[in-house]
Design a protein around this nucleic acid. Sequence first.
DNA 1: AGATACCAGATCCCCTTCAC
DNA 2: GTGAAGGGGATCTGGTATCT
Length: 420
Amino acid sequence: MATTQSTRQPPPPIFDQLAHLPDPFARQPEPVPSHLPAAARTVHEDDFWHALRFLASYEGSTATFNAYRRELERLLQWSWLVQEKSIRELRREDIEQFIRFCQDPPRAWIGTKNCARYRGPEGERKAHPDWRPFVVTVSKVQTRAGKTADPGSYASSQASIKSLFAILSSFFNFLIQEEAVTSNPVALIRQKSKFLVSGQRREVRRLSNLQWDFVLETAELMAAEDPDHHERTLFVMQCLYAMYLRISELVADERHVPTMSDFHRDSDNNWWFEVVGKGNKARSVSVSNAMLAALKRYRLHLGLTPLPVPGERTPLVPALGGRRPVTSTRHIRAMVQNCFDQAVERMRLEGLADESYELQAATVHWLRHTGISEDVKVRPVDHVRDDAGHASSLTTDRYIDAERRERHASARNKPMKTDS
DNA sequence: AGATACCAGATCCCCTTCAC
DNA sequence: GTGAAGGGGATCTGGTATCT
């Protein structure tokens, strides 16, 4: 049985055995023929070509492509090495075994760090020796505390299993279209799934009002102390909170280069900010007076007129001392994290240990959540929905529900009588 | 040596569809 | 008309290669 052997050793990089075929891990996949080539002589090649063409249909979105590619390699590795079957022979029981395998993979299949799938000179595909199909991670807070990755502590999350189901199901539906299989073994186990906990609703992850006050004040202090670096930090924090921006909406990429003239005034003298967001969808965000003041402050610091003029090409978030825009979300994240870190320190000094500890887990996206969930308290839901760029009020409503829970929690233990 | 671009995997968000 | 499942696509985080 292959299992014993494969639990002790890392799985061989299967795709390397098929080196004569196109690289499924190339960023720009080669054009894939629409039918199976006669060259697919072996079972492995046959599986491989199906997987490759499935992946090719997701070329347009890097994130999705990467996620699907990862799960497909796991499936092929397991199918060939452990189950010793073609993917076309997999039945419901096999898929269940595969899910369990992914929930608790053998030690040898778990890596402790992300690394390139391949290395070596261009054109020479050589598996990276440290690469593994699964990787154990350590949270930001734990990393700070000096914790290192331990393969023994690998645990797949509910979210991972859920997306694994989705991807496998898509793949087998694709195989049905290709007439490679006749049924979808994944769909058969969906119903009475023992693998997923249903009805789990996550809390909205946001800053408390106290935390946000500290963070904003910290940004202001940083800006006062080191304007050259941190006027920009302050401006970014304010954009993320007051306009509910996603991190990607602040940086220049191939789909959009945000500039100052994305702020514009309409015939009623109201200011709007034009955003190109998730899924290439454009929207306008209403600009509050406080946000407008923040914009003026930052522009004065940059030596610009207080308000942008139409056609102005200045980047919304310029690189320090340069005319070029910031192009990396990592850069923005570093700015925000730096501000969070200093706010944590200030809270700790003021004796707010618990609140400061929670703030350590905060991420950039929390600022968007915080802005939305504060504003649904006082603004009509449709307005917040449109400014946030939600397609449906159902999404925005989640933030209202969160507020209700919070409200109830604060009321739950209030006494009936005042005893003093 | 530091900045930065890019890569990989885990996790989260949120739109669409479907069941009731 | 709700609520949840399904699915696509984003963010979050750390690692590495490359540039300056």
